[in-house]
Structure formats: C-alpha cells, structure tokens
C-alpha cells in the first residue's frame, strides 16, 4: 500500500531532512511513525501526500509511483487528519463537510450526518459556526473530513490531541473499524498509548533516519531487562536518546 525506497529530502544546502528512508506499509495495516519534533515525520508525511516534491528515492502509494501518478486521482483515495483542526470557522460543521465533500466523486462520499453521529458530535452544534466549538469538537469535524471520501489510505497526525479520555477511546475504536474495512492507516503521534494500542508496527525516526522498526511487542521484548518489560516510551528513549517532546 505504501512503499518507500531510499527516500531523501533536503530543504537546502546543509539542511538535509531525510537520509534514505526505507519502509513498506501493507494493506489494512496501522503503521506508527514516531519521532521527536524536527526528526522528519512531517516532511515524510508531506512527501507521501504529494505536498512536497523534489525528493530523492522512490515512493509508491496504492501501487502507483507518486512521481508519475495522476495526483488528483491519488488524492481522491486518501484521507488526511492534520495535527491542528483546520476548518472554516465562519461555517458550521455540516457546511464545512459539505464543502470538502464537493471535491470528491459522489460515489465515494459518505453521509455527513451519519459520520458526525458516529463521531458523537453534539447535535445542537451542527449548524453553529465552528468558531463556537471546543477543541474536541473541532477535532471530531476534522476526523469526519478525513473519513469523508471513504479513503483507502488514511494519514492521521495526532488524532487524539485535544480529546477527553472517552473521546480518545472513541477515536481509537473508529480507527480500528476503518482498518477492519480494509483502510491502511499511517499514524504520526507523540502519544505512546495510542501507538501501543493501535499500531501493528511502529518506526522510530530520528534525524531523518529510521532508528528502529518492528511491532510494539517485539520492540518491548528486545529491550526487556531482568526487572521488567519497558513501556513503548522507554523503548523509544532508549533508541533515540531523546524524549518525544524534545
């Protein structure tokens, strides 16, 4: 579903962001991409979603090399949840979603009200402008936007950010459901609980290199000490030498 070979990218002289990444993500897999700020996560995601060009190496999504593929056709099959809930604050949740839905083929578009209902969006806010929403409500609308076009490939950046615990549980359930329907999920997060609970495999990225790539369980096993099995966060620190927020 995602195949990345020797991916390099530079923002200019002496500003090399990626140093030859290699990984694959299989169909229906939830793949965690973890790393501290500035490690190259966003750059990789931007390349995968076609925002950044001028990279080295080869990237293919849904079986097509993105350098040669019809970007518009590819984007019709991709859903993206950004780190921040970017929405038109003068429009309501419904109007926002109907606007974004208008760019996709009708046969791919899901029912807006059903989606919002699934995300437990408060009904009395449906027609109020987004400017009056809490962060959690905005995150729900953003998630609905990412799922709007029934994507085959879902990019999620900090999906549970700004949600209360029950909201985070709901989001994890929805991500699992999407995977159950055959959607591949590329998850970028700082939240080790999300990564541990959701991901089939995780990659730790540091300074543009993959420091480790395996299932969360294997990574924990490999770093087990006589006293205890480490948490995923402890494993991450062991590989990268840095905390996630550094």
């Amino acid at each position: 579903m995602i195949r990345v070979n020797n991916l390099t990218f530079s923002y200019g002289k002496d500003k090399e962001a990626l140093h030859g990444l290699d990984f694959t993500v299989g169909e229906g897999e939830i793949f965690g991409f973890l790393g501290p700020n500035g490690s190259g996560k966003s750059t990789t995601q931007k390349i995968l979603t076609g925002i950044l060009k001028g990279y080295g190496g080869r990237v293919s999504l849904l079986g097509q090399d993105i350098a040669a593929a019809d970007t518009k056709e590819l984007l019709k099959q991709i859903g993206v949840l950004f780190e921040f809930p970017y929405l038109y604050t003068n429009l309501s949740a419904v109007d926002n979603l109907r606007y974004f839905a208008s760019f996709y083929p009708q046969e791919r578009v899901r029912d807006v009200m059903e989606l919002l209902d699934k995300l437990e969006f408060k009904k009395d806010y449906l027609k109020k402008p987004v400017s009056s929403y809490s962060k959690g409500m905005r995150q729900r609308v953003s998630m609905a936007r990412a799922l709007l076009n029934s994507p085959k490939l879902l990019f999620l950046d900090e999906p549970t950010s700004g949600l209360d615990p029950s909201g985070a549980v709901l989001f994890r359930k929805i991500i699992e459901e999407e995977r159950g329907n055959g959607t591949t999920v590329f998850l970028t997060t700082h939240n080790m609980v999300d990564a541990d609970l959701l991901c089939d495999r995780v990659a730790f990225i540091l300074n543009g290199n993959i420091a480790a790539l395996d299932t969360p369980q294997n990574l924990k096993e490999q770093n087990r000490t006589a006293q205890k099995e480490p948490t995923l966060e402890e494993v991450f620190i062991r590989y990268t030498g840095r905390g996630l927020e550094e």
Partner: peptide, 11 residues
C-alpha cells in the same frame, strides 16, 4: 484558519 493547507490534499 489554516484551511489553505487542507486544499493541498484535496483533489
């Protein structure tokens, strides 16, 4: 509002 960036991933 940041919505210009959203248009980068829309067809």
């Amino acid at each position: 509002m940041g919505v210009i960036r959203v248009h980068a991933i829309l067809p």
